[in-house]
């Protein structure tokens, strides 16, 4: 019998040692890209995107192409057999026969669990609704390590939609495994972090505070992680319109921030970071996408056993 292929659904599916290994690998990819340019020659990656996510899909495709591999897939359920009513299980069973590794984005939470039960090749969740998005977290931790030199001893500010923002929850899960970090949770009352996520902070015994004021929190932060209030997570348009503009990061608000603070954002942004901030040296959100590509390269290599 073939061993069960590895599926990465949640950031916690990777051990701390594995994440550290992936970050080291990403650093080596940055230094020596030519060493990796043919590593995935004759290997194929499927990108199965049931909902639009140009950035994540292109990041995976760019990662595979940079490794000398090939890509195939679909973008949008309307162009896939899902439009004809095919189940996730069937699509995954079929695709397992075509490719060496698969990436899937699906609007429904838990779709990757179904996929992991049917795939015969390594599988990566590229986002399932408001649930998990592990490769975004891999991009985030690499950006933090590269800008701060470490993943410990950091005061991390998380701002915006902390209720539905899956990237925030995953980032907390990942950072809680590294010692001596403090957490400042900045959100309106309606978008406060859920109780179960708060319980993790309490159980870990880490220092954290909840606030509604970005201005008050900003001077304390080493990392400011901004998030977008996402329209697709609301059932009610009225709630979305009321909350979407609540925190907008401007050069004025940054005046009181530390000179070496790093601003991260999972992107896409709407207006929560003013474009005037882009010129600030502390803006690392575009650099974060490069880190994301390199971590995806590292993850593909690792899951295909080509990282040695």
């Amino acid at each position: 019998m073939q061993p069960t292929p590895r599926s990465i659904i949640n950031i916690l599916d990777l051990t701390v040692e594995e994440i550290d290994h992936l970050m080291d690998l990403a650093d080596d990819i940055e230094k020596n890209p030519e060493k990796y340019q043919d590593k995935c020659a004759h290997k194929q990656l499927a990108t199965l995107f049931y909902e639009p996510s140009t950035r994540t899909r292109l990041s995976f495709e760019s990662a595979m192409l940079a490794l000398g591999g090939q890509i195939l897939g679909f973008a949008g359920a309307s162009s896939s057999s899902a439009a004809k009513g095919e189940s996730v299980a069937d699509t995954i069973s079929v695709m397992s026969n075509y490719v060496d590794i698969m990436v899937m984005r699906h609007p429904k939470e838990g779709a990757p669990v179904v996929a992991s039960m049917h795939t015969t090749v390594p599988f990566i969740n590229a986002g399932d609704g408001g649930h998990f998005h592990p490769t975004q977290t891999l991009a985030d931790v690499l950006t933090i390590r590269r800008t701060r030199g470490s993943l410990s001893g950091i005061t991390l500010g998380l701002c915006g939609d902390l209720k539905f923002g899956r990237t925030v929850h995953s980032l907390i899960d990942a950072m809680l495994r590294y010692p001596d970090n403090k957490y400042i949770l900045i959100s309106p009352e309606e978008l406060k972090i859920p109780e179960y996520e708060l319980d993790k902070l309490k159980e870990a015994g880490v220092e954290f505070e909840e606030t509604t004021s970005l201005e008050e929190a900003i001077p304390k932060l080493d990392i400011l992680y901004m998030t977008r209030v996402q329209k697709e997570r609301f059932f009610n348009e009225e709630d979305y319109l009321r909350l979407k503009d609540i925190y907008i990061l401007t050069p004025e608000k940054l005046r009181n921030a530390k000179p070496d603070m790093a601003i991260l954002h999972p992107l896409p942004r709407v207006n929560e970071i003013s474009v005037a901030v882009d010129k600030d040296e502390r803006a690392k959100y575009f650099y974060q996408t490069l880190c994301g590509k390199q971590m995806r390269m590292a993850l593909i290599l690792f899951l295909l056993g080509l990282d040695k």
Binding site: V88, K108, G110, A111, V114, G129, H131
Partner: peptide
């Protein structure tokens, strides 16, 4: 009962 769960659209699961 989560309307965002995959089970809401794939009833045979």
């Amino acid at each position: 009962k989560n309307p965002r769960c995959i089970i809401s659209i794939e009833q045979e699961l």
